[in-house]
Design a protein around this nucleic acid. Structure first.
Length: 99
DNA sequence: CGTAGGGCGAAGC
DNA sequence: TGCTTCGCCCTAC
């Protein structure tokens, strides 16, 4: 299976209201340091609506990037009950989801 | 076939 | 704290 397929699949397992990091996602598919790759895959994802790419953030709690802008991403996250303060996840540890 | 570069990460100043 | 530099894996050119 393609790397990207794996990533999408994994990403889909992240429950509503929870988030994960590029690093964790990468590790979950067997890559210890595939963070950048994950980012690339995200921006190339064929179905942004289906794939919750907004639930993926940086490991330092920062929002990271988004296809349509990080502000959109922030709104999406907030809507899911995740507190965001100044481009950073507030209750980062609470909403963090590990595979 | 070689190389640059991306929604990153961690270490070094 | 905040910015810079280098390292990572894979895809696209």
């Amino acid at each position: 299976m393609n790397i990207e397929k794996k990533i999408y699949k994994k990403l889909l397992t992240v429950p509503h209201g929870k988030i994960t990091t590029y690093n964790e996602l990468s590790k979950s598919i067997g890559l210890e340091n595939g963070q950048r790759l994950v980012g690339q895959i995200m921006k190339k994802n064929p179905f942004p609506v289906i794939i919750p790419c907004h639930r993926v953030i940086k490991s330092n709690g920062d929002i990271g990037g988004y296809l349509f802008g990080i502000d959109i991403k922030k709104n999406m996250l907030r809507k899911e009950g995740i507190c965001i303060i100044k481009n950073k996840i507030d209750n980062f540890k609470d909403v963090f989801f590990t595979f």
